[in-house]
Amino acid sequence: MNKRQFLVAAAIAGIAAAAANPALAAKDGKEKCFGIAKAGANDCASSTGGHACAGQATKDHDPNEWKYVAKGTCTEMGGSLKAGGKS
């Protein structure tokens, strides 16, 4: 038996065993589904109800108002790195 035949035989054995297992075969796919909604991006109404549109209170006319400094959770991971992964 070559490698390929061996792998396919193992696959068939596993498929047959799973298909014969009523717990798996009869699985109806029901599960809890609360809390799955994502905030929609296309609605204009504010989630807090204050304004009809998302950024109504924010004026934006300063071209250089921002210096980029990451201040989130990334600061917990060893600071600045060089690209390239597992170096």
Partner: peptide, 10 residues
């Protein structure tokens, strides 16, 4: 400027 602010917020 407010219009731009809305755009950025969206």
């Amino acid at each position: 400027a407010l219009y731009r602010g809305n755009l950025t917020a969206n």
